[in-house]
């Protein structure tokens, strides 16, 4: 087989079949995928099910701490997790650009396999399309995820934050976006920082099994912590107050942010969860989270208050400011 993706790989012909047989099936093999039917037959319990889907587009597709494959598993697993579900099955769709090196594709598949295993999910169906050269950024991936609620009595929803609830973040803020910017051509800086990209389901399951009363859960990906908090505050109609000095941030992220004029709370994360819960459970939750490697820097960063949907941040020097909803990607600035 040639060592790059060509239009023939997307033709549905023999070469296409080979791609699936030799690579995709090889790495994702499980009983549900084995026969390569048009769909997978999966077992569904009587439990409440959760479905989600997400598409992944990222430049560069290999970056410090991960790649687009790992990202595509973590993203969907974490979305299911945020609903209080146990992720069980994934499907994945690839859009490959003509010219993509097969070796790179394999690297991505391997990384998906490893991450899926870590998260304990099966990839049961997939699809591949090829687009002509310069009509894509090498590779795009879509994953759809199926999961089941761990505790049906738990009502986790963006509408459920209540005054007095505690806000927890499960670790350092902004690592992913700074790592990506570093690896991208253009800004030309180097730093010792990796994307936090990771599946959070095993860690969060422990919280639910330990009867922690979680009211809201969201992973602060694009739009960052500020985006998620604003959404929660507006949907639940509460104010959220957070404290700058309580925020866990790597010093490199602070340095990059001050150099380029970024707001760290707007930066994207791929392995963090914002958890809003009853204040009585907060300490216990922290203890459980901190035991996990992915949650060792977990911290209480603020509280919900009576109000009408405004997020405020108390600065280190005691000032108070409004934390706005981020607009779009931040750009380095000089003033």
């Amino acid at each position: 087989m040639e060592d790059i993706i060509t239009v023939a790989h997307g033709s549905g012909g023999k070469i296409a079949r080979k791609l699936i047989e030799n690579y995709i099936k090889k790495y994702f093999l499980c009983p549900e995928l084995k026969t390569l039917e048009d769909g997978a037959i999966i077992k569904i319990n009587s439990k409440k099910a959760v479905l989600t889907t997400d598409s992944f587009v990222i430049t560069p597709y290999f970056f410090s701490g991960g790649d687009i494959g790992k990202l595509s598993i973590c993203g969907t697993v974490n979305d299911l997790t945020a609903m209080g579900a146990e992720p069980l099955y994934l499907t994945c769709g690839f859009i490959l650009e003509e010219g993509l090196k097969i070796a790179n594709f394999i690297k991505i598949l391997k990384s998906m396999k490893k991450t899926a295993k870590q998260a304990g999910v099966k990839i049961v169906a997939g699809d591949t399309k090829v687009v002509p050269k310069s009509k894509g950024d090498g590779i795009y991936i879509n994953t759809t995820g199926y999961g089941e609620l761990i505790d049906e009595n738990l009502k986790i929803s963006v509408l459920n934050a209540k005054p007095g609830n505690v806000v927890i973040i499960t670790g350092n803020i902004g690592d992913h976006e700074i790592a990506i910017l570093k690896d991208r051509e253009g800004l030309k800086f180097s730093a010792d920082i990796k994307s936090d990209c990771a599946p959070l389901n095993n860690m969060i399951k422990k919280l639910i099994k330990n009867k922690i009363r979680i009211n809201v859960m969201r992973d602060p990906t694009r739009g960052g912590v500020a985006g998620v908090l604003n959404e929660i505050a507006k949907s639940s109609n509460v104010d959220i107050e957070i404290y700058e000095e309580k925020l866990p941030i790597n010093k490199v992220v602070i340095a990059a942010s001050s150099m380029m004029g970024f707001e760290p709370l707007f930066l994207a994360n791929e392995g963090k969860m914002i958890i809003i819960l009853e204040d009585k459970d907060a300490e216990k939750a922290l203890k459980i989270l901190r035991k996990s490697n992915l949650g060792k820097n977990s911290a209480i960063i603020g509280y919900c208050k009576k109000g009408n949907g405004i997020v405020k941040i108390k600065t280190k020097t005691g000032g108070m400011r409004i934390l706005l909803q981020p607009e779009r990607e931040q750009l380095p600035r000089i003033c």
């Binding site: 004029g261 000032g319 400011r321 706005l324």
Partner: peptide, 24 residues
């Protein structure tokens, strides 16, 4: 507003209108 700015003083991260808005 910073989400939908009319003038440059609201666009710029250090514009006077943006500063007043952000810090209430």
């Amino acid at each position: 507003t910073p989400e939908k700015p009319v003038g440059a003083c609201m666009v710029s991260s250090e514009g006077t209108c943006a500063a007043y808005y952000k810090y209430g």
